[in-house]
Amino acid sequence: MLVGYFDSIPRELDEAALVDGCGPLGALGRVVLPAARPGVIAVAIYSFMTAWGEVLFASVMTTEANRTLSVGLRQYSTQTNVYWNQIMAAALVVSIPVVIGFLLAQRHFVAGVTAGAVK
Score class of each variant (00 low, 15 high):
residue 119 K to I: 03
residue 84 W to L: 12
residue 5 Y to P: 01
residue 42 A to T: 14
residue 16 A to V: 13
residue 111 A to F: 10
residue 33 L to I: 15
residue 73 L to C: 00
residue 114 T to Q: 10
residue 94 V to F: 04
residue 86 Q to S: 11
residue 101 G to Q: 07
residue 58 A to I: 09
residue 111 A to G: 04
residue 53 G to W: 01
residue 2 L to P: 00
residue 49 M to L: 14
residue 93 V to M: 06
residue 117 A to F: 15
residue 82 V to F: 12
residue 66 N to V: 12
residue 98 V to I: 14
residue 68 T to E: 05
residue 46 Y to E: 10
residue 34 P to C: 01
residue 24 P to H: 15
residue 40 V to H: 08
residue 8 S to N: 13
residue 20 D to R: 05
residue 44 A to L: 15
residue 81 N to L: 03
residue 118 V to A: 02
residue 47 S to A: 15
residue 39 G to H: 10
residue 65 A to M: 08
residue 20 D to L: 12
residue 16 A to D: 02
residue 10 P to M: 05
residue 113 V to F: 13
residue 115 A to H: 05
residue 17 A to W: 05
residue 68 T to A: 07
residue 93 V to K: 02
residue 78 T to F: 05
residue 79 Q to R: 12
residue 56 L to Y: 03
residue 20 D to S: 11
residue 105 A to N: 04
residue 32 V to E: 05
residue 80 T to G: 13
residue 20 D to P: 06
residue 23 G to R: 10
residue 110 V to M: 02
residue 1 M to D: 06
residue 5 Y to T: 10
residue 50 T to P: 03
residue 96 I to L: 14
residue 75 Q to N: 15
residue 59 S to C: 00
residue 102 F to D: 01
residue 80 T to M: 14
residue 111 A to C: 02
residue 36 A to Y: 09
residue 110 V to G: 00
residue 43 V to I: 09
residue 15 E to S: 05
residue 64 E to M: 05
residue 87 I to H: 05
residue 55 V to M: 11
residue 22 C to A: 09
residue 86 Q to T: 09
residue 29 G to V: 08
residue 74 R to Y: 14
residue 2 L to V: 04
residue 38 P to D: 10
residue 71 V to C: 01
residue 26 G to V: 12
residue 52 W to V: 02
residue 90 A to Q: 09
residue 11 R to S: 11
residue 105 A to Q: 08
residue 109 F to I: 15
residue 62 T to V: 11
residue 44 A to F: 14
residue 79 Q to I: 07
residue 22 C to N: 13
residue 56 L to E: 00
residue 45 I to H: 02
residue 63 T to Q: 08
residue 57 F to Q: 06
residue 29 G to W: 04
residue 13 L to E: 08
residue 85 N to W: 04
residue 64 E to S: 14
residue 54 E to C: 08
residue 26 G to P: 15
residue 75 Q to H: 14
residue 65 A to K: 07
residue 18 L to N: 01
residue 104 L to V: 15
residue 98 V to D: 03
residue 88 M to Y: 15
